[in-house]
Each structure stands twice: as structure tokens, then as C-alpha cells.
């Protein structure tokens, strides 16, 4: 088993994304084989992305902290279940995704069916067929100080769109990585992002009444 403990320079795992999946796999194999430093490289690479995804997925910071810790604990407990043929980032965020689903179910916050349907414009929300313009820099600055409004806007999204938006725009995942985490097709993810971003722009771009 190759050991990565001597690779204190994190560049091996943290460089650009080309070959990133392979380096992740090498880190996982080394960690499972007993190299603690290899885990540190993976952890450094993904901790902030995972935290942003979890934090934006729940409205309470303490709950987010608990969930974040729980996801990493599951990674440790289930490390031998990981398969080298799959992307580590997909595996990691699949664990996070399932943990969040369980959490929302326990909190009885599973998005209602009306939210699932409203993508079709059948409820009283702006139609997704009207294209919203990007938010202006001034509007972005206003929203930065209004966390509640951002959370409300996210809560209005159908769960699939919300998930895609958070994984892409908050966790920084590529469409392929989202596919590996959710099992969804690339075009479906792209479609959800298109609808989700449009809906967010419509909701966040509207002035507060």
C-alpha cells in the first residue's frame, strides 16, 4: 500500500481538479491502509465545501454543526465501504445528502408536494418560463445582510432544484460530481439548475413588500 504520509505538501490532493478524483482515490486507499495524513488531505480539500452545503441546507447553525460532524463520522465508520471505482466527492456528498434527507424527515420539513409541482407554474409563484435577469451587484449586497430572505427563497424551491443549486453553487460541485452523488443524469441536473437559478433570481430580485 502506497503511503502518503510524507506528502505534507497538500498540493498532491489539492491542486486543480484534473486528476483530482484519482488523487482522492489514492488518499482514500492510503488512509484505509493506515496513513492518517492522507485523511487530512481529503479533509482539507472538502471540509469547507461540505460545511457550506450542510449549513445552507438547514436553517439552524447548531443543527448544521451536528450534521456536519455526523457526516464525517459516517465517512470514518464506513470507510471500508468506499469503492475505488467511484468518485470520493460523490460518495462524501451522497452520505451528506442522505443524512440531510433523514434530518428533514425527522423535522417534518420534507418539501410539500405543492413545491414539487410548482415548477410547472401551477401554483401562485412566478412562472419559470419568464427568464429572470441576474441580480445586480447592489441587490447582491443588500441580500448579503438578509440571511432570512435567502433561506426563505431556498425554502420555496422544489427539493430537487434546491439540492442541485446548493451542490453546484454552494458546494462547488461539477455536474458530473452531482450526478455521482445523486444518481441523476447530467441533463436533469442542468435542467434543475436552470429552473432553480431562475426561480431564485425571481424571488430574490423582487423587492420586499
Amino acid at each position: 500500500m502506497a503511503r502518503l504520509g510524507s506528502l505534507k505538501d497538500s498540493s498532491l490532493c489539492l491542486d486543480d481538479d484534473s486528476g483530482g478524483a484519482q488523487e482522492d482515490a489514492r488518499c482514500m486507499q492510503a488512509w484505509i491502509g493506515g496513513d492518517a495524513a492522507a485523511f487530512d488531505l481529503l479533509h482539507t480539500r472538502y471540509r469547507d465545501r461540505l460545511w457550506r452545503y450542510v449549513r445552507r441546507s438547514v436553517n439552524d447553525e447548531e443543527q448544521a454543526r451536528e450534521l456536519y460532524q455526523d457526516v464525517w463520522t459516517r465517512v470514518i465508520d464506513r470507510r471500508t465501504d468506499w469503492q475505488a471505482s467511484g468518485r470520493f466527492v460523490g460518495w462524501l456528498f451522497a452520505i451528506a445528502r442522505h443524512r440531510l434527507i433523514d434530518h428533514h424527515r425527522a423535522q417534518d420539513r420534507t418539501p410539500s408536494i405543492s413545491r414539487e409541482i410548482d415548477v410547472d407554474g401551477t401554483v401562485d409563484l412566478p412562472s419559470v418560463t419568464s427568464i429572470a435577469r441576474p441580480l445586480t451587484p447592489d441587490r447582491c449586497a443588500e441580500l448579503a445582510a438578509d440571511a432570512d430572505r435567502i433561506e426563505q427563497a431556498l425554502d420555496q424551491l422544489p427539493s430537487a432544484q434546491r439540492e442541485a443549486v446548493l451542490l453546484h453553487h454552494v458546494a462547488g460541485m461539477t455536474l458530473e460530481e452531482i450526478g455521482s452523488a445523486t444518481g441523476s443524469k447530467r441533463e436533469a441536473i442542468r435542467s434543475r439548475l436552470r429552473y432553480g437559478v431562475n426561480r431564485l433570481r425571481q424571488t430574490l430580485g423582487a423587492t420586499r413588500e
Partner: peptide, 9 residues
């Protein structure tokens, strides 16, 4: 969609 990325992050 940088505007959405900036706002959400």
C-alpha cells in the same frame, strides 16, 4: 450565475 453563487455563499 455568479450572482446566485455570491448570494448563497
Amino acid at each position: 450565475a455568479d450572482d446566485i453563487t455570491a448570494v448563497l455563499s
